[in-house]
């Protein structure tokens, strides 16, 4: 009798042990998995962050030290923070900044409007060639920029607009990119049509419906487009290079990316030391980084919400 109960107890204990171990193994595994994930994340984060750190450290080094003629270091041995960063803000830099700001703000206002207009038209429109034009608009994504570059340049030249900021702003009026239109359309589709119909019965015209009812509901996608536009225009180099270039009258219209290119990469005997270059870099990156940090949820979710299914 006692043996049996001992056996039972041992077996029960063993079973309990095994259950406990299994449960904890799962939990243990989970912990290990979590730890591993964190490890990987941090490693990769270091990989992605490293150049930024490099840029920052180099921007506070002294002249010769940053050039490397006395040995290359990662950590600066002298801190010239104020001197270098002060040297960045000369007249030219402020001018580049102003120009970039003009381009970016104009585009941030125009493009979401145009994209939403077109998106609404494609989503709600009742005309037979709707599908045709939508496919055409989408297929412009696949058009290589090089093919249209030369004639568009000549076209702008005819109107005397090369060397100014106009070629960077005008294309935004015409829809602002197929991708934005596509996203806008997807979003409008998710808005129920009943509201439109109710408004129509009340006698509202199409544009009123768009402006008063649909557009305010498009806020998430508008935010997404606005931020995206900001980022892509802040960084833009290719079109600024082609349309603005480096002539006298166009120099005062150079954007930040372009101005930095001509100032530091096409060199004379000044501005050769990397420290001021890196300082300029840090200052240029800061606004976008901050913006992205603040709005990252909207950006990532913006794409999620519309669900890029072809």
């Amino acid at each position: 009798m006692e043996k049996a109960s001992i056996f039972k107890r041992i077996r029960k204990a063993l079973t309990n042990c095994r259950l406990y171990l299994t449960a904890n193994r799962a939990r243990g595994l989970k912990l290990v998995k979590k730890g591993l994930t964190y490890c990987l994340l941090c490693l990769l984060a270091l990989f992605f962050l490293f150049p930024f750190l490099f840029m920052f450290f180099k921007s506070v080094m002294g002249d010769l030290e940053s050039y490397g003629s006395m040995g290359v270091h990662f950590f600066p041995q002298e801190w010239h923070f104020l001197k270098n960063y002060g040297a960045v803000f000369d007249v030219e830099f402020l001018r580049y900044f102003r120009n970039t700001l003009i381009v970016v703000v104009c585009n941030m206002v125009i493009i979401p409007l145009a994209a939403c207009l077109c998106g609404y038209g494609f989503a709600r429109g009742k005309f037979k060639s709707k599908g045709f034009w939508f496919t055409v608009a989408l297929s412009t994504i696949m058009l290589p920029g090089a093919v249209t570059q030369v004639p568009v340049y000549v076209m702008f030249r005819r109107f005397g607009l090369t060397g100014t900021l106009a070629p960077l702003i005008v294309p935004g009026i015409f829809g602002g990119g197929a991708l934005n239109i596509f996203l806008a359309r997807q979003f409008v589709r998710s808005i129920p049509k009943e509201m439109d119909e109710a408004a129509t019965i009340d006698g509202a015209g199409k544009f009123t419906i768009f402006w008063r009812i649909v557009f305010p509901l498009l806020k998430p996608i508008v935010i997404y487009i606005v931020i995206n536009t900001f980022m892509s225009n802040w960084r833009d180099f290719d079109s600024a290079l082609v349309y603005i270039g480096n002539t006298f009258s166009s120099k005062k219209w150079q954007t930040l990316a372009l101005g930095i290119y001509y100032k530091f990469l096409i060199r004379g005997t000044t501005d050769i030391y990397p420290n001021v270059q890196m300082a300029t870099g840090v200052i240029t990156v800061l606004p976008i980084a901050v913006l992205f940090l603040v709005f990252q949820r909207q950006l990532i979710e913006g794409v999620v919400m519309t669900g890029l299914k072809d």
Binding site: L117, G125, K128, W133, V136, L143, T148, G175, F210
Partner: peptide, 27 residues
């Protein structure tokens, strides 16, 4: 009515014509 709807996508239509179609041909 149809023309009215069409007006909404007029920007992108014009954009395609001016900045994509015409340049391609002229190029």
């Amino acid at each position: 009515d149809r023309l009215g709807w069409f007006a909404f996508i007029l920007p992108v239509v014009l954009g395609v014509l001016i900045f994509s179609f015409y340049p391609m041909v002229i190029s």
